[in-house]
Design a protein around this nucleic acid. Structure first.
Lengths: 243, 243
DNA sequence: GTCTATAACACGATAGAC
DNA sequence: GTCTATCGTGTTATAGAC
C-alpha cells in the first residue's frame, strides 16, 4: 500500500567472486524464506484469494505481524514468485543458448522454457497476473520497481539475438530484444488465458509464431520492405519518448 | 465471487420495434440505476479502491444490502461502465464511418474515438483494467460472459474493413476485424499504462500504427509476401482451435 | 534487529428479519 | 426489496520479549 519496495532485489546468496559481504543475518533471511515458501505452497494448493495471511503465518509457525515485518503486503509475496521463476528461466535459457546458434530454435527454446517454468503455477499465475496488471502496482512488469527484473528479462532476449548467426539490419538488431520481450509478455498473457489442457494452445502459438518471426526478420532485408521496416522503427522511436 | 452474472446483459430500455415487454418494474430498475450512477460518480471522484460499498450505499440513500441485491459484487458495478462506453463508442464510430471510405482514416477515427470516450476515466480505467485482466472474471474481455460485448466491439471493426474501399486478400479480410480488435485491446492496454500528459503517447501510437497497418495490408498482396501472409493466417487458425 | 501475542479497524460480503 | 446486524478478511497497532 505504501509503495515501499521489499528487499526482494537483494541477492539471496552471497555471490562467489563478488566482494564478500559480511554473512547475511542468517536468522532473518531464513524466516523470510520460510514465510515466502509457505505462502507459495499455500497459493498453489488453495489459490491466492483463498489463502489468508493468518493461514500463512500459522502454517509457517510465525505470528501474523512477523509476516508483515518481512512483506509489506500480501501482494508483495507475489514478487518472490516472480523473482524466483525469472531466475530459473534465465538458467534454463543459458543452457539452451549454449548449444544452438540459429535464431529460430534459440527463440523457440527460450519461450518454451519460460512456459515450462511457470506451468506448475498456471492457476495461481492468473491471480498473479491480475495483480501485476495494475499499472500503479510496483509488480507491474512496466513499473519502475520492476525495472531490474525487466532488464534481466530483456537481457535474455538480447542473448537470443546476439548469439545467433542471423543477419539483420543493425537498427532492427538493436530493437529486437525489447520487441521479443514484448512478444514474450504477449505469450504470457495468452498463456494465462489459455484453458486448453496443458495449455497446448500456447505451445502451438510459440511453435507457429517463431518461424513466422524468423521469416519476417529475414524478409526485412528485402528492398521492397525497407520502407516498412523504417516505419516500424520510427514508430517505436516516436512512441517511446515522452515529450 | 460466485460467478453469477448480473442482469447487465439485459437491454436497459425496451427497443422500439422489438416485441414490447410489459413495462419493466420501474421501482427496481430505478434503484438499480441510482446505485450504478452513484457508484460511477464516486469512482470517478475518488477512485475505485477508495470508494467503499458503504459510501456508495449511503450516497445513494440505500442500505448496503440493497446494493448487493442489485450487484453481486463491487466488481460487477464496473460492467455498467464497460457497457456504457461501448455504446457511446459504437455511436461515435458510426458517425465517423458514414463519412469516410478509405481504410486508414476509418481506422484512425474509430481508434481515436475509443480513446476519447474513455479519456475522462483514465485513472479509474486502470483499476477497471486490473479487474478485467483476471481471466476467471466475467468482466474479462475474453470471457464467455463478455462475449456479446466482445462481438459488438469486433462488429465495429468489421464495419471499418467492410465499408472501406481497400482491396485485400479475401481470407485476410475475414480475419482482419478480429485482428484489429485485438490491436485495439493492445492500444487500450498501452493507454492504461500511458502516464504522459493527456495520454499523448497513445495518440502518437495510433497515428503511427494506422499508416503502418495500412501499408502492411497493401503489401500483403505482393507475391513475395504471399507465403508470409499464408503463414500468419495458418497460425491464427492453429491457435484458435482448442483440439 | 527479530519476533510474539493479541486486539482492533475498515472493508467486502452475507444472513435473515421485515 | 429493503433493512440491520454480523462475519471473515487484509492490515495496523500496541506492548513487549529475546
Amino acid at each position: 500500500m505504501t509503495g515501499v519496495t521489499t528487499a526482494a532485489a537483494e541477492p539471496a546468496e552471497p555471490q562467489p567472486g563478488a566482494p564478500a559481504e559480511k554473512p547475511r543475518r542468517a536468522r532473518g533471511e531464513q524466516t523470510r524464506q520460510l514465510i515466502l515458501e509457505t505462502a507459495l505452497r499455500l497459493f498453489r494448493e488453495r489459490g491466492y484469494a483463498e489463502t489468508t495471511m493468518r493461514a500463512i503465518a500459522k502454517e509457517a509457525g510465525v505470528a501474523v505481524g512477523n509476516a508483515y515485518y518481512y512483506f509489506d503486503s500480501k501482494e508483495h509475496l507475489i514478487q518472490g514468485f516472480y523473482d524466483r521463476n525469472q531466475t530459473i528461466h534465465r538458467a534454463a535459457a543459458e543452457q539452451i543458448l549454449a548449444g544452438e546458434k540459429d535464431l529460430a530454435p534459440r527463440l523457440r527454446g527460450v519461450l518454451h522454457a519460460g512456459i515450462d517454468v511457470n506451468a506448475p503455477y498456471h492457476s495461481f499465475a492468473a491471480t498473479f497476473f491480475k495483480t501485476a496488471a495494475e499499472p500503479s502496482s510496483p509488480l507491474s512488469p512496466f513499473s519502475r520497481e520492476s525495472s531490474p527484473a525487466r532488464e534481466a528479462a530483456i537481457a535474455i532476449f538480447r542473448d537470443v539475438v546476439d548469439g545467433s548467426t542471423a543477419k539483420l539490419d543493425p537498427e532492427l538488431r538493436k530493437e529486437l530484444p525489447e520487441l521479443l520481450w514484448l512478444g514474450w509478455m504477449g505469450v504470457i498473457l495468452f498463456w494465462v488465458y489459455d484453458k486448453s489442457p496443458g495449455q497446448r494452445r500456447t505451445r502451438r502459438l510459440i511453435d507457429g509464431a517463431v518461424p513466422l518471426i524468423d521469416r519476417l526478420v529475414s524478409l526485412s532485408r528485402l528492398r521492397v520492405l525497407r520502407p516498412a521496416l523504417r516505419q516500424v522503427l520510427a514508430l517505436i522511436e516516436t512512441v517511446r519518448k515522452d515529450d
